[in-house]
Every structure is written in structure tokens, then in C-alpha cells.
Simulated scan of single mutants.
Amino acid sequence: MAPSSVWKMWGSEVEVRVTEWAALADAAALTEAAMTQVKAVCDLGSGDAEIHRLNQAQGTPVRVSTELGGLIRAALWAARMTGGAVTPVSIETRDPIGAVPIAPCFHDVRVDGDTVFAPFGTFLDLTATAKAGTAHRVARRAADDLECGVLVRVDDVVATWGHCPIGGWQVETGVARRAGGADRVEVRAGSAMASARAPAVSSDGPDPGVDCVTVIADDGLWAYAAAMAAVGRGVAALRWLTENDLAARVAYRHGSVRTTDAWLHLPPHGHAA
């Protein structure tokens, strides 16, 4: 088993695995530093995070740091790729003084160099996409700097870089990990995996049919966004994943599991265990 370190930060469980024992402490330190830097910029729970200045601007263009600008661009890219199913924009439905409905969307947010414009009523939350993107970036940086194989997991987003350990990177899906199960997938080096689970069905709400979606992609942000978007599509999840040529597995509430053709055609070192 590859050497590993697990800890909690920013409301998430973070795990780092390496192929060389001597690299574990440095890989964990690099990961923690990267997460801390991103958290300082966009953590909504931190009063001095830079994102608050943008959210308080309400229709006024704001110059932002390179870090925040990059996180916003990444989140808007995920929104475009998923048709808005995964979006950084939260909406305030009424203005502060009256009853004028406001419905901005991600298309209304513009980034020009280091200046960001978000219309009145827009509230940006980059938390999920920032974590997913950071997992992939830090895995690559740590593997390159330390010259070994590295896996970084932030909750249900897993990213790998460098060479694999003997037997490959065996990773439990998010659902299996929380349930104490043994559902493992082998994630090939240089790729990412994300799992998303449908919310609990309310007594008066429709049953989406889908229980969990797992996606393997070349990028942690895309794997996360695709899994979340597919879950939101319910019974149409598999069709959307297939149309986007994604390697994915869909578990349904009634117990059946289906996969896309791309999942079936993954290389031998990226198959379901």
C-alpha cells in the first residue's frame, strides 16, 4: 500500500498518497499550502477572504488577484461545459428595497484581464470548483517537484500524477468510502476521478432514479463538474455522459449499474476493480 496522510481542512477530508515514503511529508506540505492559499482567497466562511470584496461590489467592476481571477475563470468554464448545471453563481431573488426579481447567471459574469464584473444580485461561491481544481494542480506539482507518483484526494475528487505504485492507484468511490464498502476503481496516472451522489429523496419530491455517478477524466475539475451535472440530470445522466464521451459509471437507486462505452474502453490500468 502506498504511504499516505489524511487530515481535515476547509470542511473537507484531504488525503495524499505517494510512491516513495521519503516524499510523503513534502507532498502533504505542498498540498496543505496550496489548499491554504486557495482558501484564503475564496473561503466564504473567512471574513478577510478576497472573494467578499467582489461579492459586495454588486455591479461594480473589481480588480482581483491572479489567484482569484484564475479560480473564477475555472468555475465559469465548468459552468459553460455543463450548461450551467455546475455554476459559481448564487442568486439573490429580490433587490434590497423592493420586489424586482433578479436572475443573473454565469453568462453575466465577465472577466477582462484582472478585472471582474458581476451584475447586481450576483453572489459567487467558488468553493467546490476551487477544491477540485486544486487537487489536480497540486498532484501534478508535487509529482514533478518530488519526482515520484502522487495521489491527492479532496473529499470525492481524486487526482494523480507521476508513475503508479505497484498494483496501480486503487481508490474507493465516494459512496463506498462513506458506507464502509469495498467498491474500488483503479485510477490511471495523470487522470482524475470524481463521484457525486444524488440528494436524499423527499417524501413529496420526484425520485431522480440515479444514486451515484463516478467519472474518470483528464482533469479533476472536469471530472467533478461532469459527475455533479450528470447526477442533476437524473435518468438522463448516462445519455449526457455518453454524448460528452466521458468514462463514467452510473449507479441507480433500484440497484443496477451502467457504464458508458468510454468507461468500458479504458486502458487495463484504469478499469473497475
Rank of each mutant, 00 (worst) to 15 (best):
W263Y: 08
W161P: 00
Q170C: 14
A74I: 02
E186K: 12
W169D: 07
A198M: 07
D245G: 10
T173E: 15
R94K: 14
L30A: 04
V16Y: 02
V185M: 12
L54Q: 07
G174V: 02
G181H: 07
L246P: 00
S5D: 15
L221K: 07
T122V: 08
I166Y: 13
A33C: 03
W10N: 14
D156V: 06
G47C: 07
A159D: 01
G180V: 10
I216M: 15
V154F: 07
P199G: 14
L68S: 05
R110S: 09
P101L: 12
A28E: 13
L146A: 05
A237E: 03
M228I: 12
S191I: 00
A118H: 04
H107W: 11
S202V: 08
R110I: 07
R140K: 10
H52C: 02
C105G: 15
N244P: 04
G209R: 08
P206D: 14
C212M: 08
G234C: 06
P61M: 06
V250W: 01
D48I: 10
R140L: 00
I72V: 15
C164D: 15
A143P: 01
T242D: 13
D43Y: 03
D155M: 05
A230N: 09
L71M: 13
T36L: 10
L68G: 09
S65R: 10
T260H: 04
V257Q: 14
L44R: 11
D144A: 12
G232V: 01
A2Q: 10
D145R: 04
S256W: 10
V64H: 02
Q37W: 03
L221T: 11
R239N: 09
G11L: 01
A128W: 02
G162S: 09
I51D: 02
E50S: 10
W161T: 00
G270A: 15
R17N: 09
T19Q: 00
S65V: 08
V154E: 03
A189Q: 07
L124H: 02
D95M: 04
I166R: 13
A251R: 14
E243A: 14
R177W: 04
A22K: 13
A179H: 11
A118E: 05
A179C: 11
A23F: 01
G232W: 05
G45K: 05
V215Y: 01
T122L: 03
D43C: 06
G133L: 04
G59D: 13
E13T: 15
G83R: 07
Q170A: 15
E147P: 00
Q58L: 08
T60N: 14
M9H: 11
S256H: 11
A139E: 02
P267W: 03
K39H: 13
G69S: 06
A223R: 03
T31L: 02
A135E: 00
S203M: 13
A128K: 03
G98K: 10
D26F: 01
A25I: 01
E15I: 04
E243V: 01
V100H: 12
D112Y: 08
S191W: 04
L246D: 02
H52P: 02
A33N: 08
L238Q: 09
L246I: 05
T93L: 11
F117A: 10
T19S: 00
F123G: 06
E13F: 09
